[in-house]
Simulated assay, not measured.
Amino acid sequence: MNLDTYSINEFDIASEKYWKGEMNTELDIEILYEGKFKVINEYKNIENIKTYT
């Protein structure tokens, strides 16, 4: 989860691109979420995350 802070202008540009359907060139996973969350750990890449089955 990217927890960087963006300016209002950066949010405006990103939202316009999103609603136009422009593809993101970054390899990020996008999740839409509404509500509170708590950061409990930080991972530098997805390969470090262990899944439990």
Rank of each mutant, 00 (worst) to 15 (best):
T25G: 04
E47N: 12
G35M: 06
N2F: 11
I49S: 00
V39P: 00
S15D: 11
Y52H: 07
T51H: 05
A14F: 10
M23Q: 08
E10Q: 15
N41T: 08
D28K: 11
W19E: 04
K20G: 01
I49N: 00
N41L: 03
E10C: 03
W19I: 04
I49F: 02
D12I: 13
D28A: 08
K36C: 05
T53W: 02
K38G: 00
E22H: 03
A14H: 03
I49Y: 00
T53S: 07
L32D: 06
I8K: 08
D28G: 03
D12N: 15
G21P: 01
I40T: 15
I31D: 00
Y33L: 12
E30N: 08
N48E: 15
K17D: 07
L27C: 02
N9R: 13
N48W: 02
Y33A: 14
S7P: 00
N41S: 15
E22P: 01
M23S: 12
E22I: 15
E42F: 05
W19Y: 14
I13N: 03
N41A: 15
E26C: 04
E30H: 09
W19L: 07
D28L: 05
L32G: 03
N24F: 10
N2C: 15
K36P: 03
Y52C: 07
T25Y: 05
G35Q: 05
L3S: 06
I29K: 04
K44G: 08
K20M: 10
D4M: 12
K17T: 02
K20W: 02
T53P: 00
K17A: 14
D28W: 01
N41E: 13
L3Q: 07
T53C: 03
F37G: 01
G35N: 03
M1Q: 02
M23V: 14
E30C: 10
A14S: 14
I31E: 01
I29P: 00
L27E: 08
N41C: 09
Y52I: 15
I31H: 01
I29N: 04
E34R: 11
V39G: 00
Y6Q: 06
G35S: 03
K44M: 10
Y18V: 07
D4F: 08
F37C: 13
L32A: 10
T25Q: 07
N45I: 12
D12P: 01
T51D: 02
S7R: 05
T25M: 08
I31K: 03
Y6F: 12
T5M: 07
E30I: 10
F11T: 10
G35V: 08
K50C: 07
G21A: 04
F37I: 15
K17P: 00
I31M: 06
E22D: 14
W19K: 03
V39M: 06
E34V: 10
L32H: 06
W19S: 01
N45R: 10
